[in-house]
Amino acid sequence: MTQSERDLIDRSRDGDAEAFTKLVARYEDRIFRLAKRVCVGMPADADDVYQETFLTAFEKLKSFRRDSDLGTWLYRIASNLCFMRYRKKKREPFVPLLDRPHDHEDGEGPALSVPDRTPTPEETARKKELQAAVGEALARLPADYRLIVVLRDVEGMSNEEAAKVLGIGVAAVKSRLHRGRMFLRDEFERASSPKAGR
């Protein structure tokens, strides 16, 4: 944490809204992106999570430990707010993420139809389409898996950082991350197969 950030936190703790607005400006892009990706399909909720995160932080800043990372703390508040919304609305789609034999047992499982991954003009042309497909697949993941995938693979956090944000162990992060990624990979496969979209 830089000295200027420490100063802004101290002033914000004393109720200085202007100082806190400067902190908001440093983190709001990341928090809004997280809210938008996790509350996918519910734009009003993403706006609310964004606003509530900073209002809660302003209110609770006195309980923030100075040796912690402010970004991690804000991500934690935002993640909790996202979960609370899903719990409240019970909109959670059911997607079983059980262990399943993944296409692999020495050719005995279902054959993968993965195209050669060397970029081709067709692939380049479909880039946006595939991004949209992954975005849609992300929306079908249960919220706790989605949150981990977004923190790790969209926001670029380490497993340790994601574990701190979510208050769970690194092993739990990795386990959910692997399952979430494999689910997305399967969805991505469907979207990128030659028959998709025709």
């Binding site: 692999h104 991954r117 997305l184």
Partner: peptide, 23 residues
């Protein structure tokens, strides 16, 4: 089979990283 899983996982991760667009 492992090569295929890795290739498609790499593709998926690459698409996810590209979701990191300005807010």
């Amino acid at each position: 089979p492992c090569a295929r899983v890795l290739a498609s996982l790499e593709c998926t991760l690459s698409a996810l990283r590209e979701l990191r667009t300005p807010a």
